[in-house]
Design a protein around this nucleic acid. Structure first.
Lengths: 185, 185
DNA sequence: GTTGCCATGTAAGGTGTTACATGATTTA
DNA sequence: TAAATCATGTAACACCTTACATGGCAAC
């Protein structure tokens, strides 16, 4: 999936500038792009070329002109079509698992230290997600059903990090048991 | 993280050709690269340039010459250093969540159909992971501890899809309750 | 006789990141 | 006085994917 549909999604709420979109992407976890200008401004040019959005230029005296993008009828149709299209499975790039694959090279203390670092990071990330859900920064909540969907989206992320934490705890405990020589086959 | 360390990891077991590596990557879930030749052959050229691997060319009469790569001392040192370096958090690109963000556009039946498709796919993927663990295709298992690490790596993936399945079940049930108008705030 | 395996690679394109550039205004 | 905010964008590069190219051999 490409960033264009997410942009169309945001524009389906209200007209926005590239700068606005940049902040929306930067502020949220599950919009996983970094929110960098390059991608967003190029995507907007492309969407404009395809007439999925229209552009209005607002003059400003001391700042650069604002380019306000509005979704068109075709844009809404394209968004709607994508929303209904067959879903993809998530892509998980778990670099740490690759690291673990050869972690038998490490002595027990160093391995445990590595796992502890990972655990701390995952916990920190979990807190960030939970805090983000609590604040509910960008929540359209136009209907109760939509509010429910957004809550469940946040739950998905939170659950992911909780699972990750539980897993690393189990792993560390298992390795300690190993050290004490009481491991089953 | 880049593919180079994973290649060094595989080469730390035994010398391999690009073709061998390609298959190793293609066969496993948590080595998340697609296992395409472009990346692998270029990475090998780079590693060779940095003298982290050495290359031996085996003549063959009817096939192209095999280029067998062996990890060097520097290669092992680089691998060891990377294994001990501070771990990164996993990157999750969950396109379906982005789709869900605007799924309130869909009527109830279509939304449920979408979720069902996702559920089926996730279940299928879970089975693939479980099957892969059962077969234990590429498992070094040089020490019991290493075997344990690899089992836990597989568990991580399996748990991920199990979590995903449980989540989508909850979501679907919640939406049905919504339809029946018995939703709490 | 077509598919798949062995074994090397190239070409082209999509996607994404970081850093840079401008320049006035507000906040610490 | 340094920084962040508003608002646009460019440049360079890293990374990753699909498809293509070669060509003999084995299996179904």
């Amino acid at each position: 999936m490409s960033i264009e549909y997410a942009i169309l999604g945001f524009l389906s709420w209200r007209p926005l500038t590239g700068y606005d979109l940049k902040k929306l992407f930067a502020d949220s976890e599950f919009f996983y792009w970094s929110g960098n200008s390059n991608q967003i401004y190029r995507a907007l040019v492309k969407l404009h070329g395809e007439e999925l959005v229209s552009r209005e230029i607002e003059r400003q005296n001391n700042y650069p002109d604002r380019k306000v993008y509005t979704i068109t009828g075709e844009g809404r149709a394209a968004l709607r079509a994508w929303i209904g299209s067959t879903p993809e499975l998530p892509e998980l790039r778990h670099a740490f698992l690759v690291q673990l694959a050869w972690a038998d090279l490490l002595p027990p203390e160093e391995l445990d230290a590595l796992l502890k670092t990972y655990e701390d990071r995952a916990r920190a990330q979990l807190l960030i997600c939970q805090e983000q859900e609590r604040r509910g920064e960008i929540d359209p909540a136009r209907t109760p059903r939509e509010a429910y969907l957004w809550r469940m989206m946040a739950e998905n992320w939170i659950g992911f990090y909780q699972h990750e934490l539980a897993w690393v705890r189990t792993l560390r405990d298992g390795l300690v048991a190993f050290e004490n020589g009481e491991r089953e086959a």
